[in-house]
Design a protein around this nucleic acid. Structure first.
Lengths: 225, 225
DNA sequence: TCAAAAGTGTTAGATTTACACCCATGA
DNA sequence: TCATGGGTGTAAATCTAACACTTTTGA
């Protein structure tokens, strides 16, 4: 290998994943106890080191796959975290990514095997190093993103009720929405399609199930919630 | 030094700066011809390598200082760029930052010495590696930022006319604004203060000069343009 | 005297917000 | 029969967008 920049120092690069899920009307993330030194036992995001033969995005996807077994998941970069003492061991610069998954798609067996758990975004404990800052930034990003992009559906099952959808938006933004106004806006979006199916899990009367039509959306343009 | 993570490979880290300026009613950035291999002679952002004894933010600030001699400049991270072949030499992951400076504060002597020039954001040539992508992302970020934060003033001299301010917002967003509506909104912001001074450079009649009062703003809250 | 930029208000339309009751059903 | 969540419309208030003429003054 030709070395053009030989006089410069290299650093270790890691990726850390903020994996969002929506369950019990709450926005949650996956965290676990760190199983290596330094910081063993502290709450931590799930992460991994970047290999020299993969891009940052690929490293993040691989890490997510490793933890969850899931592919083709929405992921987006949060940013690079690089204070010199952020890792007590040696210098590690970390690139944070957030992912949106459907909790139901994540096998409980795998979850337990990796020793991670879903924690309500409002109740995140103090974590290792700068992981709380990563989560805070990821949350801001998803709040922005969800305003103009239909990413919320990544967190829901294929079929969902309007109440579920509303609770999701409320959980992401941390504030309640008016039911009638919310449903009015949804009705204007022809890519959120009502099905004939009825969900009877959460009410005696039953609620209509809806579906997000990705194809109908891409042609469409406007999305505001 | 203790090495906890010795089995992992390290990579070279650089920072690249998208330095925005506002001049002649245009939004511009500083770019130059790359003076090292590989890619010598190609248009490029100004950058540098991250040292092991400085944070990413510090590396970006140092790089900006090196180029412009300016300190205490507004800078914000754009993101990490890490495709494996983004640098034809060897693997380099780069963290992009954007900075907002007042063109008048940058000595022409220094500028020429570094061989960089101001190029209209609409006329950026093809650049080295993924630098065009960095600029595109930085521009999106500044467009978002300027909507709710008074960062535009970083690009203006201390005293400015309302027309200048309007041209700045138009240049950032790439679309014209209605003069009366714009001025109405400005009048509602008590942290944009009219001075007694008159600028006669751009019109015979003269235009009132305004000043941004940072202190008055931090107490205030709302900002929408 | 005239060209060129500064400065100034009103109105229609669109969007946003607030708000309360009936419905269907299983327990 | 009643408790529970599902479902629906209207009106006031706010915000946004469109629009044109007068002023000042140096050349």
């Amino acid at each position: 290998m030709t070395t053009y920049y030989k006089e410069f120092q290299k650093v270790l690069l890691s990726v850390d994943c903020i994996i969002f899920g929506f369950d019990q009307n709450k926005l949650k993330i996956l965290i676990g106890r760190r199983n290596m030194d330094p910081g063993r036992g502290e709450w931590s995001l799930y992460g991994g080191f970047v290999r020299n033969d993969e891009s940052l995005d690929a490293a993040a996807q691989r890490t997510l796959l490793e933890l969850t077994g899931l592919r083709n998941i929405f992921m987006s970069q949060v940013g690079a975290f690089g204070n010199i003492d952020r890792d007590p061991g040696e210098r590690v610069v970390s690139i944070a990514y957030y992912a949106l998954i459907n909790v139901k798609d994540y096998s409980e067996r795998l979850r337990k095997q990796h020793g991670v758990e879903w924690v309500n975004i409002e109740d995140i404990p103090q974590m290792y190093s700068d992981h709380n800052a990563m989560v805070a930034k990821a949350r801001k990003l998803i709040q922005q993103k969800i305003k103009t992009n239909p990413v919320g559906f990544e967190l829901l099952p294929e079929l969902f009720t309007l109440t579920q959808l509303q609770r999701l938006y409320e959980a992401v933004n941390g504030e309640p929405l008016d039911k009638r106004n919310f449903r009015k806006r949804i009705k204007d979006m022809d890519f959120i399609e009502k099905t004939e199916l009825i969900d009877k899990k959460t009410s005696k009367r039953g609620a209509s199930l809806y579906r997000f039509n990705k194809k109908a959306f891409t042609e469409d343009k406007s999305f505001k919630l």
